[in-house]
Simulated assay, not measured.
Amino acid sequence: MLFCADLPSLIQEGPQCGLVALWMAGTLLSPPSGVPLERLVQVAMERGYTAQGEMFSVADMGRLAEETLGCQAELLRGGLGGPNRGLVLQHLVAGHPVLIPYDEDFNHEPCRRRGHKAHWAVSSGVLLGVQHVPSLDYTEDPELPGLFHPVPGRPCRPPSLPGEEAPGATYLLSKQGKSWHYQLWDYDQIQDSNLQLTEFSPSRATDGQVYVVPTGGVQAGLCGQALLLRPRDSCH
């Protein structure tokens, strides 16, 4: 069962993965024209959140989102598990994007490098493995038997969401700024990657560039955190 919203693509230049992810999320929150990436970079630099486009603070990203996109930004702490798991899944089922920092592997998927490959992705959908379709408000995909989508324009009752101990698969439909393509990431995989962002990359520390890193470093700014974005007039 797939709940998703479509995102545009923009291949990043330089260390702007977080701002590109925010720009993509903004297309789901703002008018069709959206907010230009250049505007996000400009405001982030003016506020002191970044030196060249990098974003090492989820809290700063939330403040930037509220100022530039006019949306609500809810900062999650303590990882993507436990009670936060239900919040993330319900948020995605409602059609709203989530910004998640993680370590990026060579194939762009989440990995565990202690924050040395810290990157940002925007998730705009969720694929749930459930035992049965809960109502007639879902339609089967014409090309993929067994895959059901919510019927557009019809309020549907979400299925019971698979928990950490409950049966069923959970995948996040995600995109990040180094690829044109969506990827499906196992929820536990992105949860684990997000929870071990603890160190600033040694290669970045010695590359001669200036980066804005919050007090407490990468661990204080990114580890175990995510950002739920929703339109200003929407309900939780």
Score class of each variant (00 low, 15 high):
L2K: 12
F3L: 02
F3E: 01
D6H: 14
L7D: 07
L7Y: 11
S9M: 10
L10H: 13
Q12C: 11
E13R: 09
P15V: 13
C17S: 10
C17H: 07
G18M: 04
L19R: 09
L22S: 10
L22M: 02
L22A: 01
W23A: 00
W23I: 04
W23V: 03
A25F: 09
G26I: 05
T27S: 14
L28I: 07
L29H: 08
P32M: 02
S33L: 14
P36Q: 00
P36S: 06
E38S: 13
V41N: 06
V41R: 15
Q42P: 00
Q42H: 13
V43R: 15
A44Y: 05
Q52M: 10
G53C: 04
E54H: 11
M55K: 02
F56M: 05
F56Q: 07
F56E: 05
V58P: 13
V58T: 09
D60E: 03
R63V: 04
R63S: 08
L64K: 01
E74L: 04
L76Y: 02
G78T: 01
G79D: 08
G82M: 07
G82K: 06
G82D: 09
N84C: 03
G86L: 01
L87P: 02
L87H: 13
L89D: 03
H91L: 07
H91I: 04
L92E: 09
V93K: 08
G95P: 02
I100G: 09
F106Y: 12
H108K: 03
H108Q: 11
H108F: 14
E109K: 09
R114M: 11
H116T: 04
K117Y: 10
K117L: 14
H119T: 10
S124P: 07
S124A: 11
S124E: 00
S124Y: 02
L127S: 06
L128H: 10
G129D: 04
V130P: 02
V133W: 01
P134K: 12
E143A: 15
L144H: 14
F148K: 07
F148D: 04
P150A: 12
P150W: 14
P150V: 05
P150L: 08
V151K: 15
V151C: 10
P152D: 12
P152S: 12
R154P: 00
P155K: 08
S160I: 03
S160N: 11
L161P: 01
A169C: 11
Y171G: 12
Y171T: 01
S174C: 15
G177V: 05
K178H: 15
S179L: 10
S179W: 14
H181P: 02
H181Q: 15
L184C: 14
D186Q: 09
D186M: 01
Y187I: 02
D188P: 00
Q189N: 08
D192W: 14
D192A: 14
D192L: 06
N194I: 00
F200P: 06
P202N: 01
S203C: 06
S203H: 11
A205M: 08
T206F: 11
D207K: 06
Q209C: 13
V210P: 07
V213S: 09
P214W: 15
T215E: 15
G217F: 05
G217S: 06
Q219G: 10
L222R: 06
L228A: 04
R230K: 13
R230F: 01
P231K: 02
H236S: 14
